[in-house]
Simulated scan of single mutants.
Amino acid sequence: MHFIDVGQGDCTFIAANGVTMLVDCGENDVSERVTDYLRELGVGRLDYIIATHPHSDHMGGMHHIIDVFDVGEVLVPHIPDKQIPTAVFYERFLDSCAAKNVPVKEAKVGQVLEIGSARAEIIAPDGGFYEDLNNYSIAFMLTHGSNKCLFTGDAEAESEAAMISGGRLDKVVLYKAGHHGSSHSSTAEFTDIIRPQTAVISCGKENPYGHPADSTVKRLERYADMVCRTDVNGTVIAESNGADMKITCEREKK
């Protein structure tokens, strides 16, 4: 798992046994950085792309990613028609998918994606109505051997409560912290269930939103031995052998 530093945004590359997945890609202006990073890893095909939700800091450059790489399929959340954005980045994403005949499918709770020796089970969104697009974020539990890792996009307290009710949560080795470490995510009840050993927060230096919130970092530190931040540590790489997890940071905390 490569938590790629894309500034104030989200981008994670996952690979196991030659099967590849990209979760979000950050803003359009960092898309070249992402494609260069993936090419340096030798990636030519992305079997799965998960576009967690239609905000530009998560998929502003997705059209560029799809133009550059061979893509198997793209998963998006179900969003009511009236709430689907008319933003240029989203229209360009759909146009690129259509031009390359890339299937765009709606993620469904309980759906499992096989990523080599790992599996990703979709646990959100639950099909309910939300005022905030963040709460439509695709969330999934990634399992590799005895290691479980949780990804929740920008899901906030409302969606986290639905995940708790859904009964698909468990203790995790790694938690990709929701909504860049916002104070509206990673609630006390939620973190008390998942009790992550490591947390990764993707955010930009001196971002205008105050991410990550001190209160959220403190909640995570109740359980996590290590809280990594892309604004401080740069790109973070987590390697699982099915039993243990090795974390490597581009930059160590000073």
Rank of each mutant, 00 (worst) to 15 (best):
64 H>T: 08
81 D>W: 08
86 T>H: 10
51 A>H: 03
105 K>D: 01
52 T>Q: 13
106 E>H: 15
83 Q>N: 03
52 T>S: 15
61 G>C: 02
100 K>A: 02
74 V>A: 10
50 I>C: 01
86 T>G: 15
48 Y>F: 15
79 I>N: 11
69 F>A: 11
102 V>G: 15
49 I>V: 13
62 M>F: 00
66 I>E: 06
93 F>Y: 06
78 H>E: 11
95 D>T: 10
46 L>Q: 08
54 P>E: 00
94 L>E: 08
54 P>Y: 00
57 D>Q: 05
69 F>K: 08
72 G>H: 04
57 D>L: 11
85 P>W: 03
57 D>P: 08
88 V>Y: 02
91 E>A: 06
56 S>T: 03
53 H>K: 02
91 E>L: 00
99 A>P: 11
98 A>H: 14
75 L>A: 03
79 I>E: 07
91 E>V: 00
84 I>N: 07
94 L>I: 09
87 A>R: 11
58 H>C: 03
52 T>D: 13
81 D>M: 13
70 D>V: 07
62 M>G: 09
72 G>T: 05
66 I>N: 09
101 N>L: 10
108 K>Q: 14
85 P>S: 12
76 V>A: 10
85 P>V: 12
69 F>V: 03
109 V>Y: 09
75 L>K: 10
59 M>C: 15
107 A>C: 06
71 V>E: 05
105 K>T: 08
102 V>N: 14
61 G>E: 00
85 P>F: 06
93 F>R: 02
48 Y>M: 08
97 C>K: 01
70 D>W: 07
79 I>H: 13
89 F>Y: 14
77 P>Y: 09
78 H>R: 15
97 C>Q: 08
94 L>N: 12
80 P>I: 02
74 V>L: 09
93 F>M: 05
72 G>A: 07
75 L>R: 12
51 A>W: 00
58 H>D: 02
96 S>P: 05
52 T>C: 06
92 R>A: 08
62 M>W: 00
88 V>L: 07
95 D>N: 12
74 V>N: 13
58 H>G: 12
87 A>P: 15
77 P>N: 13
105 K>P: 05
60 G>R: 04
69 F>L: 05
79 I>M: 06
62 M>S: 02
54 P>G: 04
61 G>P: 06
69 F>E: 10
46 L>E: 04
91 E>C: 01
77 P>S: 09
62 M>C: 05
57 D>R: 02
103 P>S: 04
103 P>L: 01
71 V>F: 05
107 A>L: 00
58 H>M: 07
60 G>E: 01
90 Y>G: 08
109 V>E: 14
99 A>I: 03
89 F>L: 05
95 D>V: 03
73 E>L: 03
104 V>R: 09
68 V>G: 09
96 S>G: 03
67 D>F: 07
61 G>D: 01
84 I>C: 13
53 H>S: 12
